[in-house]
Structures are given as C-alpha cells and as structure tokens.
Design a protein around this nucleic acid. Structure first.
Lengths: 349, 349
DNA sequence: AACATCTGCACAATCGATGCAGCAAGTAGA
DNA sequence: TCTACTTGCTGCATCGATTGTGCAGATGTT
C-alpha cells in the first residue's frame, strides 16, 4: 500500500555513505581489494546498501560491460517431456554459474527461430544454446555477426559445437529388441514392422529411420517405402495413419516403432478401439519415455533420452577453450517394458 | 569464419547516413512522425540499418526507458505437464505483445523464489507472473519496493491480483464421480476413499482436501484423518504410502483420489505388482491429466486444469486498469475414463 | 518587407554502473 | 629533509539509446 519509492542506485548509497559512486560500485562488487578500498568502508557501504534494499541495475551493468549475465536457450516446445527436462537442467546449470537462463520456444518454425535469436542477441546474452534448430546455418550466421558463442543441441549445426543424442544407436537397439521380442514369442511374422511418426526431413528422425532400415536389412527383411510412415508429430495424424494401416493389413501390424510420444498418443487413440487380444501378436516400441506409457496393458519398449547429459555436455563445450567444432554424442537409455500380457501389471525389471 | 566485427550502433548508422544519432534513433523507432523526420530520411536510414545488420541494444534502451521489454514468470518446475503448458501459453501471449518472456523455476523453494524475483527485478522486467508461489507476501513486498506489477497464478497472494484454478470445484466434482462410480458398480464399499499425494500446507491441495471432505461428509461418510495421505509430490513416497495402506487394508482401497500426476506415477509403481482383478472393486481418480494415464487398463477419472485459461486471465488482470486485487477462478475440466474393464480399450467418450 | 509558422533536423543531457587515471596523505628509506 | 612508494579514495569518460530543447531555412501572411 505504501507508495513505491524509486529504486535506489549507487548514487543514493554514495550520498548516504559519504563515499563516491565509484567507491560504492567497487565495494559492492568483487574487486574492491584490487581497487584498494578499506575493509571498513566496504562494510559500511554494504550495510547501507542492504538497508536501502539496493540491487544492481543489470541493464546499466550490461551496457557498460557488454555482457548481460543472461544465457539463452531456444527449444521447439515447452510442452514436451524431453524439452522441458532440458529446460530444467539448463536452468540448474545456468544458476550454478550465476547466470540467468532465458528459454524461448520456436514452435519448430524457422522464421520464429530467427526472430528469437535476434531478440536474444539484442539482449546481449552471453551464450546461446539452440535445441532442435530448424535452420542452423542461419543461426550460426547471426551469432557470428554478433560474436556470440553458441552450441547446437539435439540437432547438429556445422558452424558450432553440437551435442546430440545418439539417435542411430538408440533406434538400432530399439529395433533389435522389437525383432527379438517378435522372435521370442515364436510367431511367424505375418507382416512387417512399421515406423510411425516424426518428420523424415528432421535430423533425429532421419538417423532413427536409417538405424531402423539397417537392422531390418541385416535381418534379411529390407524395408519397403510403405513401412516408413513419417506423419509428423501431431497425435491426430498418427491416429489417422495407423487406422488406415490397420485397414490395409486387416489387423495390427506385427510390430511398430513409434517415433515420438505424441505420435504414440495418436496411435493409442486408434488402438483403444481394439480388443486386448489384438496386441498379443504385435510388438511395440516408442522412442522417448513416459512413465504412464510404460504402464499400459501391453508391453512397450521405450527409449529415454538423456536430457541432462545433453545439456551438461553442451555447457562443457561452450565453456571450453578452444571452442571446437566437435560433435558430441550422448547415449540414450533403453527402458524395458514394465508390463506384460499374462500378468498385465507384473514388473519384469 | 570471418572475424566478427563489433555490433553496429546508431552512431555507426548516423555516420554512414550523414544524419545525427538522434535522427537515427527516431527513424528506427515508432515516433519518427512526431519528431518530424522526413519520410525519405527514414527510408534511407532504415535501408542502411538493414544492410549493416543493426539491431537495437536492449540494455541501452532499457536503461534509458527504465523498461526492459522482458516479462518474468516464476514456476515451480519446468518438468511438469501443467506448468510447462503454462510456460507455452505465457510465451505465446508475451510474444503477441512484443515482449520477451523469461521463465524461471523455483523448485518450490522460498529462498530460491526470492532470489529469482530479485534477479528478475534487477533486469527490470515489466511484469511478473508468479505461479505456485511459496511465499506470496515476500514476493509482494519485493515487487512493491520495485514498483513492479505482478500477478499470482495457481496460488493466490493477498498483495496482488490472483488467478487460480477452481480446485474446490474440480475436486468436488471428481470426488462425486468417484462416489457415483462406486455406487453404479453396485458394490458395498468395503472401506473408504483415500486422498493421496500433495502437501496439505499448499493452497491447491488444501482446497481439494476441503472439497473431498465436504462431498464425503454430505454423503454421510465423514472423512477420518487417516484417509488423507498428503505425502508430497515424489513418486517414491506415494509408492511407499500406497503399499503400506494396502498392507493395512489387506487389499486396494475401494477408492483413491490421487492428487497429482507424480503421486499417481508412484501409486502405479505399487499397483503394477497387483493382478488386474484387484482393480475391479476400486475407483480411481487423478487430479491433473496425462494422455497416457488415460489409457491404463482400468478406468481413471482425471481433471485437466486450464493452463492457457489461467495465463490468459492473468495477462488480462495485469494489463487492466485499475489493477485490482481480485481473485479470479478458472474452471478445470473433468475427463472421463477412456478405458473400462470389460473391453479394456473401448472408448466410452 | 516584416513577421509568424512550420519543417527537418542536430545538440546535449540522461539512465546507472564501471574502470582508468590521478591525487592527497601517510610511511619508509637515505 | 627530500625522494619513492603505498594506501585509500575521487573524477571523469564511457557503454548505446532516448528525448527535451533549440535553431536554421522554407513557407505563408498581412
């Protein structure tokens, strides 16, 4: 209710303490020893600053020092398990370093991405992390012009260090597990394993598709074009595609490699109309992990990407000297099904 | 690879265009008409600025105008469906207004929360949104001192407008649905409905517990203390509590009101060791929504909070004049089970 | 022709923090 | 006593954009 008074500045503290603004600045900072300020003076100034509720005006400091203390990160979406885990890790690591994280989402739109990068540059962020870049070249060009250190995460760029999930390995292992499961269950595969969801022009999906192809080719089951249904990330389109597929096949396919949680959500939207028996002869895997998806009434093989590891590596890269254009891989983790048919809820782990 | 040149400023543009810095500033801004800059001059200046890749130094502008163009939001966690939806909405609305959102997570720690607010104030954010505040009074005090407009979201504060989910109504309806389901299934409730998860000192949980009590009391089943198991948000502790409960009862309770997704995840951790039959005589509800949790092999009643609606209202409040200390409620949505026992995957909706 | 008005722009102060250069007073060494 | 340092602090310019004020020159008015 009390009318707010203007925020106090070093000039106010200077007046109150009888010292000069530059002394106040030094006393409140780290380097008062080098500036030969007496310890007693420092203490007085700090006491007064606390009493006055002083806090540094970061805009002024940033202007003067040409560094803001902000670190930027661009992610495709906030509303996504994988990316929001990255946000959480990023925030923790940034705070450890006394930096302030600014996280923006691009909605996978190159135009929006460029606008965001430009904005972050305007605010003089000290570093920039770009996850799932849609146009790495453009980002690098802008960062170069602004002399800004940046790292690509999850999707590599050629102009800066990159840290990515080992999508090939994750998908390779997942596909092998699907094949093995199909074999163990002693069935004659009545048809092929399908790859569903994602966008085959996006880097991660392309790696996974390559691994999927390789495993099946090695197993003597070369992949036909129709087995790759890269229908995007929207649940709705996955529902449509899986329905159409089941229609064509007359049943569930004998195996599904679902490329994202959102696609899996869409797949479930169709699967929910089928009797449980229909799943007995189908093996299902999903790239990405969700704790609830692990408890469905049929087994689901999942892959959990190491969001924290990615960000940790990315920070290492960006702080390293020299700042090399290397590509670092971080391994994802395979998660065995939590449930199985006959004792639907019995833990195998 | 080209060595980065210093970012260009209005002084560079001024030199190149033969105009003065103030003319350049006006020409690049909105108010060149008021400042009577000739249209031709504006065009020349803008052309040169584009050629030079000029972008405003927001630190300098912020320093001069005492506004940064940043808007802050504090959330407990990034890694959470509800809060990350809020982030997504917040970002969209902020961008619509040409502002830059800065989202920070407090980990539900009052000390961290204060530190974050202080930091955001240092960066001169124009508005502050605080979701799930742990110490609203302290936040208000700091914002008052800095003359900063703020809004509380999801958890109300007395010193600023607040927008909250109607937790009472959401929990009231959910509890009623649980009761009704138990009645429909024609069973004699062998025991009581339990409330599991959350923290009874936190505002949302308290509202929900109150509704839970009221519904049961109205139904002639007054709630005993042991029915409220507010064991926090960690999956692990929910697992432990539900296991202990089942042990005491000798079976699953006849009904469970699970207060958060993380608690539900923990509950599932125990439930996964039970045969499906055990669920037939138990009704289960979860406050908060997850698409995969909706497809488990037993019916789950869920509540979906309107994250977007909350943020939309919060923005309305903060931009409104006068800036009133009102409390706005936003209704959550009840989500019917997607699955049912006998045709485990058949849609009832 | 004398005066008023308008147009288009430049000047200079300002926002708050920082850091270099320098100055007065004190201490030490010769 | 005089130079040579050291200590503790102040003054001033600076970062880049904004904005109130002012000033020529052009145009209009009587």
């Amino acid at each position: 209710m009390t009318r707010a008074t203007r925020k106090s500045t070093i000039y106010d503290i200077a007046r109150l303490s009888g010292a000069s603004p530059s002394t106040v600045s030094a006393a409140l900072g780290e380097n008062w020893r080098k500036r030969r300020i007496a310890e007693a003076t420092v203490e007085t100034i700090r006491r007064i600053a606390t009493e006055q509720g002083y806090s540094t005006n970061m805009q002024a400091r940033g202007l003067r020092k040409a560094r803001s203390g902000l670190v930027g990160m661009v992610i495709p979406l906030h509303d996504n398990r994988f990316f929001s885990s990255m946000s959480q890790s990023f925030e923790a690591l940034a705070r450890d370093r006394g930096q302030v994280p600014v996280i923006a989402s691009s909605m996978r739109d190159p135009t929006e991405e460029r606008r965001i990068v430009e904005t972050l540059i305007s605010y003089a962020v000290d570093y920039l992390f770009i996850a799932g870049a849609t146009d790495p070249e453009a980002v690098t060009a802008m960062c170069r012009a602004a002399d800004l250190r940046h790292v690509f995460v999850d999707l590599p760029g050629r102009g800066a260090p990159s840290v990515v999930s080992d999508n090939y390995k994750g998908a390779y292992d997942l596909t092998q597990r699907l094949l093995a499961d199909r074999t163990i269950s002693g069935q004659t595969p009545r048809d092929r394993i399908y790859f569903i969801g994602g966008d085959d022009t996006d880097y991660a999906s392309a790696c996974r598709i390559a691994a999927f192809r390789d495993v099946l080719a090695n197993a003597g089951q070369p992949v036909l074009p129709e087995q790759i249904i890269a229908c995007g990330y929207a649940p709705r389109s996955a529902t449509r595609e899986i329905a159409a597929l089941c229609d064509r096949l007359g049943s569930l396919p004998s195996g599904m490699f679902v490329n994202s949680l959102t696609a899996f959500e869409g797949v479930l939207g169709h699967l929910s109309s089928l009797p449980l028996e229909a799943f007995r002869s189908s093996v299902i895997g999903c790239y990405d992990y969700d704790p609830f998806a692990a408890y469905l009434q049929f087994p689901v093989h999942m892959v959990r990407q190491d969001a924290h590891g990615l960000i940790r590596e990315a920070y290492r890269m960006i702080e390293e000297d020299p700042y090399d254009l290397v590509l670092t891989m971080v391994e994802p983790e395979q998660i065995a099904p939590r449930t199985y048919y006959d004792s639907p809820f019995s833990d195998r782990g």
